[in-house]
């Protein structure tokens, strides 16, 4: 059995396509690389979608937190405190247990029965938690950046007669993004690392469709040898991190394209760990 056959059998195993039974005996290096790589699909799925939706909510939350209206500011502050102040691991557990309590048969809203069973599945439930979590972390970053927009920029906007939405869209928001981008890059890396927690935190891996770390743990337990699967998972994540730095670096260059070369902030990557 050549390595290509293994790739054909297990390459999309994490999505439930291909061989049904996971390898038990004669586990080769190729098996491990293929299956752990296949699990990376889930890490990418969670990371990209949570980051995308989270970006929108985070912008709203940051504006709300910076707002002078108490009824906007307080809920945003509490949301950010709760999600930044507690472990993601506990948030996953709590969300899962809460979703399990939803009535099995579905909820009746305006005569339409809404199914609830899918919410306890990792692809929906865990994604929702990750989305809220990254929104809170990013909102804090954006809020900090929003507060450090140079006073001169705002005065210039006033002088041009820009107000309201136009002022936000043309002046505040681009500068906020520019200032927040290095920190936001770290948050993105940090979020992709956090996706490895999903299948260790209550959400079951349906038909053994798990993420990279789920399969790495599977191999470590089957072979009693942690020295191969974990470094493979680590290798994939280092690659992912480098790719992220590349993409975010490109966006960073675009955000700063109007600045003279020397004053452009360089991305300084300091990935954090568990949240």
């Amino acid at each position: 059995m050549s390595c290509w056959d293994i790739v054909a059998d297990f390459g999309l195993r994490s999505l439930g396509i291909g061989e049904r039974v996971l390898p038990r005996t004669d586990i080769t290096l190729c098996h491990q690389f293929t299956l752990i790589g296949s699990g990376m699909i889930w890490n990418l799925y969670f990371g990209i979608l949570a980051l995308g939706f989270g970006f929108l909510l985070a912008t709203g939350l940051a504006v709300a937190k910076a707002s002078r209206a108490v009824w906007l500011r307080k809920p945003a502050e509490w949301f950010i405190f709760v999600f930044r102040g507690s472990p993601l691991f506990i948030q996953f557990f709590l969300a899962y247990e809460a979703l399990v309590l939803l009535p099995r048969a579905g909820i009746e809203i305006f005569g339409i029965t809404v199914q609830t069973a899918w919410t306890t599945r990792a692809w929906a439930g865990a994604l929702f938690v990750l989305f809220l979590n990254t929104s809170a972390y990013s909102a804090e970053i954006f809020y900090g950046a929003l507060r450090s927009v140079p006073k001169g920029d705002l005065e210039a906007a006033d002088a041009y007669g820009l107000t309201g939405w136009k002022r936000f869209r043309r002046i505040l928001w681009p500068t906020t993004l520019r200032l927040a981008w290095p920190a936001y890059t770290n948050e993105a890396i940090f979020l992709f690392h956090a996706t490895t927690l999903v299948f260790f935190s209550g959400f079951p891996a349906f038909q053994q469709r798990g993420d990279a770390l789920y399969y790495a743990k599977y191999f470590a337990e089957k072979t009693f040898n942690p020295f191969i699967p974990y470094p493979i998972a680590a290798f994939y994540f280092v690659m992912l991190t480098l790719a992220l730095i590349g993409v975010f670096g490109m966006i960073n260059r675009r955000l700063n394209r109007h600045l003279p070369g020397a004053s452009r902030p360089r991305l300084k990557v300091r990935p954090q760990i568990i949240r």
Binding site: I189, T196, L197, P226, Y230, T241
Partner: peptide, 20 residues
């Protein structure tokens, strides 16, 4: 070492590796 790799990988790896 810990940059670029999720720390949970280390939490799973170090105890088993140390034990062995």
């Amino acid at each position: 070492m810990v940059r670029g790799v999720p720390d949970i990988v280390f939490f799973l790896f170090v105890p088993v590796a140390m034990d062995q």
